[in-house]
């Protein structure tokens, strides 16, 4: 899940009877499964929450280029290099779709970037963990993209039209990403003892951070309840985390790897696994900026933005000159 702890400004979720007529009509459209389009009326809270959520998701895509970009220049074969490049390029593309979706809500890409750089908007906690070996490229695809898909597949049916359409495109590519991650893990887990060690080590380091991607339990959260009423959140964090664990544990077994959780047990009654909670104090530290790579990740994005200012200014100046030249011709 690339958007975590998204606030809604709501203090309680109101029933239809408590809403003014315009808002009630809006909520009824959502309840009927209709899509809301950019020019249509929407409550200010819905618009603001979507900007936070889509913006955070977009930021996660572009910051998410960095941990994998860390290994593009060290990819072990030409084919692996090409696949990883294509994957990281997809992530930039996802960022672009999502910034475009956010722009339909009245906020520009540049404004969102500035909020990110100022630390006023977040990106997913997972990208603050380091990628230390080639097996991490497998673990990121398998676990991180796997966790992201859990949330993104239902979001294809979200109520906001541009977000839903962006998500449909993104999901097609994410499932390819997850497969390529699992493919790397398969090679590593079935490889030399050193490769197998790297595979197990990657799983050990990424397992709990992947579970944290869904965020802390939100079954009692008013923000989650409001977002679910608006259909911009489709499942609770716990539901998605359970689904992820149930899907992933058999995959780890197939790889011959051990999930690093002594509390992991199949629970026949619930038809799913029992598992240990991640260390939520670590999660809140990472969110607060104290993860292993927060400084590097945000620093790299700020540097790219600042170093690129002359480039963007140059293109704009050229475009302005071209406009002036056309107007001069038209005036003759």
């Amino acid at each position: 899940m690339y958007a975590q702890l998204v606030k809604t400004d709501a203090t309680q979720v109101r029933g239809l009877d408590e809403m003014p007529p315009e808002e009630r009509a809006f909520q009824e459209r959502i309840d009927r499964g209709e899509k809301i389009e950019p020019k249509e009326w929407m409550p200010e809270g819905y618009r603001k929450t979507l900007i936070r959520q889509i913006g955070q998701h977009a930021h996660s895509e572009i910051v998410g280029q960095l941990p994998e970009g860390n290994w593009i220049t060290r990819a072990p074969t030409l084919e692996r290099k090409a696949i990883l490049l294509a994957k990281v390029q997809d992530e930039a593309g996802h960022g672009l779709y999502l910034y475009c979706a956010a722009e339909t809500l009245g906020v520009s890409r540049d404004e969102l970037m500035e909020l990110l750089h100022a630390g006023k908007m977040k990106y997913s906690s997972i990208f603050n963990y380091p990628t230390l070996t080639w097996a991490d490229m497998g673990a990121v695809g398998w676990l991180v993209d796997g966790a992201a898909i859990m949330n993104q597949v239902p979001l294809q049916r979200t109520s906001y039209g541009p977000y839903s359409r962006a998500m449909i495109r993104i999901c097609k590519e994410e499932s390819f990403h997850q497969r390529q991650g699992y493919d790397i893990m398969t090679k590593m887990a079935g490889g030399t003892p050193a490769q197998k060690h790297m595979a197990q080590d990657a799983l050990n380091r990424f397992w709990f951070p992947a579970l944290m991607m869904f965020g802390p339990s939100d079954k009692d959260s008013v923000h989650s309840a409001q977002s679910m009423a608006w259909r911009i959140k489709m499942n609770t964090n716990d539901e998605l985390r359970q689904k992820f664990v149930d899907q992933t544990v058999p995959q780890a077994e197939r790889l011959g790897l051990t999930v690093p959780d002594e509390g992991l047990r199949w629970n026949e009654d619930k038809g799913g696994y029992d598992f240990s909670e991640p260390d939520w104090s670590e999660f809140f530290e990472v969110i607060a900026g104290n993860g292993p790579c927060n400084r590097e990740r945000l620093g790299a994005r700020v540097k790219a933005w600042e170093d690129g200012a002359w480039f963007r200014d140059g293109l704009k100046a050229h475009a302005d000159k071209a406009v002036r030249a056309r107007m001069a011709v038209a005036a003759e």
Partner: peptide
Amino acid sequence: SEWCGHGPALEEDIGVANIALDLI
């Protein structure tokens, strides 16, 4: 490919990766 994620605009990150992919 060294530019991946560090370009001056998102469109350039995508474009430069595309060219790198062709060359590889």
